[in-house]
Every structure is written in structure tokens, then in C-alpha cells.
Simulated assay, not measured.
Amino acid sequence: MSAHARLRRSSAIALVSAVTAGSAFLLTACDPSADGGSAARPAASATPSRTAGSAAATPSAPAAATATPSAAATTAAATPSAAPAQPSAQPVAAALNLTKGTGLTISNGTRYVVMDGKVVDFGTVVRDLAWSPDGKRAAFVDGNGNLETSDPDGSHRTVVAKAPSGTTWSHPTWQVFGADEPHGAGAYLLFTADDKKNLRLMSVEAKAGAGPEALQVGDSEGAQIPETGNQWPYSNGLSGMTVYANKDDGQVYFHDVVSRTNGGAVAEGSQPALADEGALVFVRSAKGHSHIFASPADENADQQIDLTPDATVDYTEPAISHDGRTVAFRGPDGIYTVPFTGGKPEKVTDTVGLPAYR
């Protein structure tokens, strides 16, 4: 049975997904935070630079948590674990780093971010790194659990908002609007807030001292849209389209931030990501493991392509390039990429963390 939904702004983008009956919903822990010194380290070492692209090293990767498809796994929302200590030792070179020229970045809960085949020292813990549409600003959750933005080299950091005591923030994503939008120009961050009672999507202007507000997702042309249990927002930046997952019903939803009246479930799964034109990727349990699935944004949107049909391990946390051609995702031993149309996954770095496209 197919569920049809339409992403709209100035023109319609079809994002239609066939919901597979009986598929098990799997949600793995989103945050790649861990002590940067806990993983096995290759022998070579290098000194990072605070300037992007100036060091030829990859930080050592923390041990990756496996995503076993069990009931317990579904309860680990987009909630980061306890803040890791900022490692005092310099990161060391990994055996593999093919991120140069791809726009792919990896944050792993340490202060070091893999970027353009190099490593950048942000000077603070970086979790759930996300990039503004023009690639000129980063957003992340810092070691204190607060929401920060910075330049791509970690400089000019700004604390946008501080998480209340007892509340965990995670997985920011950017929405940037021009003057032609109904509510005017502005840069905003959507993110997940977990107060141990509810999971909610929040919105805040991307400037110091801004006050976060709950993102209202329930007004959707008569459809029943849950307001709680929502997590893992992922925006395609400029169009006002956002996808997110609901922990309670195991569905991926879309939300039109501009009109606030369009939304609905589009797939069974978790950890969704959008390309600029609406192509969707997400995680779903299949054959006993977490697989990466893709759904086009065109007339073939009923298709749901398993990009990792031969997986013998769990693949999670997908990101899709802005042109919709390449999907990156996390494996137990590093980051892999695969064409959106399918093919053999290629390992591009030994660093285990959260991939994002700048």
C-alpha cells in the first residue's frame, strides 16, 4: 500500500513512499559522541590546524555503537550520551580518508572534524554537525549540550541558546529564508529537545540570545500528525521542506516550514535526510540489520530502493549530497558512500561518526 504526500513551496516536489507492511522500525542512537581516545589508533600521527584543509590527518574514531533491531534500540532517540572529555592528545592519521573534494564532513563527538580530506580542530566538542545552505556556517551541539554556530574552521563561535537543565538537545538542521518569504529573511535552526518526558522539534533563530520555540507540526490538512515523539529533523535548507522521524509510530514525516499546513507520513523508518530537490534517504530494518533506503522525488517516488541489500552489519545515519546523487552513511568501521540509484557501497574513511554534506 502506498502513502502519497507532496512537498510544496513555489513548485510541487513529490515525495511518495510505499510503506512496507510488517517492516520493523529501527532507530539507533544518533550521536557519535565518545571519548576520542577510546578507539584503536593507527601508528602515524599528525598535528591538526584550526584552518580548514591545512592538516592531512583524520582523528581517531570512537567505537561505534551497533544498531541491533530490538525493542530497546527504538527507545534511544536522538539523545546524545554524556559529554566526552575534550581529548588533549593530537588526532592521528587514519589509514583511509577519501573525503577530499566531496563536500563530505564527519563529526564524532570530539573537537576534531574530518573535512575535505583533512582534519579541523574546532576547539570544542562537536556533535551532530550541520551546515548552512551556503556552507559558510556550521551548527552543532557543544560539550555543554548547548547549541552553537561557527565558521567552517571552528572560529567565531556563537552560543545560540543554552539547553535547560535536564533537557538534551540534538541534531540541528538549517533553514535560511530570503526577503521574499512571507515571514521575511532570516536563518533558523531546527533541532530535537528531549526532557525525558517528551521528544519535540524546536526552532530558534541562528543568533546569540535567541529563544527556542516548539515547532508546530500538527496542522496538516486534516492529517493526524503527532506533536511528541519527534526527532532527527533534516532540512533541505532553502525550500522550507523538512523531514523527521517519530519514535513512537516508526514513521518518517515531512513538514512544510513555510506554509505550516502541509505534512504527513511518507515512509516507515528513521533517521531521514533530504537532498535539495526532495530525494529522500532513511534507515529501515531489513533482514536482521539496519539498511539504507532511498526514495526519489520524481514520478518514480513510489519506489523505495534498498541501497544496502547485502548488508551483514548495521548501516545508519545517512546523509545525501545536495545534488541528490550520492548517499553517505555510517558503518561500524567508518563512513561509506553509494550512488543514490544503487550500487556497491565504498568505504571513504575509517573515522566513525555522523556524516554531513557541506
Results as ranks from 00 to 15, higher is better:
residue 305 I to T: 13
residue 289 H to Q: 10
residue 112 Y to S: 10
residue 46 A to T: 12
residue 318 P to A: 03
residue 278 G to K: 11
residue 59 P to V: 11
residue 261 T to Q: 10
residue 40 A to F: 01
residue 171 H to S: 14
residue 107 S to T: 09
residue 285 S to V: 05
residue 150 S to E: 08
residue 2 S to Y: 15
residue 44 A to C: 09
residue 110 T to G: 09
residue 206 A to I: 02
residue 208 A to F: 11
residue 307 L to D: 11
residue 1 M to D: 08
residue 276 D to S: 07
residue 66 T to M: 13
residue 321 S to Y: 13
residue 22 G to D: 12
residue 304 Q to K: 04
residue 325 R to N: 14
residue 246 N to T: 01
residue 189 L to R: 05
residue 323 D to P: 09
residue 251 Q to G: 03
residue 81 S to Q: 11
residue 239 S to T: 14
residue 275 A to T: 09
residue 325 R to C: 07
residue 325 R to V: 03
residue 131 W to S: 00
residue 97 N to E: 02
residue 13 I to R: 03
residue 310 D to Q: 06
residue 144 N to E: 12
residue 249 D to A: 01
residue 19 V to Q: 10
residue 124 T to Q: 15
residue 256 D to H: 11
residue 182 P to A: 12
residue 247 K to I: 15
residue 339 P to Q: 05
residue 84 P to H: 08
residue 339 P to K: 02
residue 107 S to W: 08
residue 263 G to E: 13
residue 258 V to Y: 15
residue 179 A to D: 14
residue 132 S to G: 05
residue 323 D to F: 04
residue 334 G to I: 05
residue 43 A to K: 13
residue 123 G to A: 02
residue 257 V to L: 13
residue 277 E to G: 05
residue 250 G to E: 07
residue 333 D to C: 06
residue 314 D to F: 03
residue 43 A to E: 06
residue 153 D to Y: 14
residue 304 Q to S: 02
residue 321 S to R: 15
residue 117 G to C: 04
residue 89 A to H: 15
residue 211 G to C: 00
residue 287 K to H: 04
residue 181 E to H: 12
residue 64 A to Q: 08
residue 316 T to C: 03
residue 70 S to E: 01
residue 260 R to N: 03
residue 308 T to C: 05
residue 193 A to K: 03
residue 71 A to C: 10
residue 327 V to R: 09
residue 248 D to T: 14
residue 302 D to L: 04
residue 16 V to G: 07
residue 342 G to L: 08
residue 352 V to F: 03
residue 267 A to N: 07
residue 355 P to I: 15
residue 291 H to V: 00
residue 78 A to C: 15
residue 358 R to V: 08
residue 169 W to G: 03
residue 292 I to W: 05
residue 261 T to L: 04
residue 116 D to I: 00
residue 46 A to N: 13
residue 320 I to E: 00
residue 164 P to D: 10
residue 334 G to N: 09
residue 108 N to Y: 01
residue 73 A to C: 04
residue 263 G to P: 12
residue 85 A to K: 04
residue 161 A to F: 12
residue 252 V to M: 08
residue 274 L to V: 11
residue 15 L to C: 04
residue 162 K to S: 12
residue 323 D to V: 03
residue 15 L to W: 09
residue 223 A to M: 13
residue 36 G to D: 08
residue 140 F to I: 07
residue 250 G to T: 11
residue 307 L to Q: 06
residue 271 Q to H: 13
residue 133 P to I: 00
residue 157 R to F: 07
residue 153 D to E: 12
residue 120 V to N: 15
residue 31 D to Y: 00
residue 268 E to P: 00
residue 49 S to H: 03
residue 18 A to H: 15
residue 223 A to I: 05
residue 212 P to N: 06
residue 241 M to K: 13
residue 214 A to D: 08
residue 268 E to M: 01
residue 347 K to V: 06
residue 80 P to C: 10
residue 93 A to W: 06
residue 24 A to K: 11
residue 256 D to C: 04
residue 272 P to D: 00
residue 224 Q to P: 07
residue 83 A to H: 08
residue 262 N to Q: 14
residue 287 K to A: 14
residue 97 N to K: 12
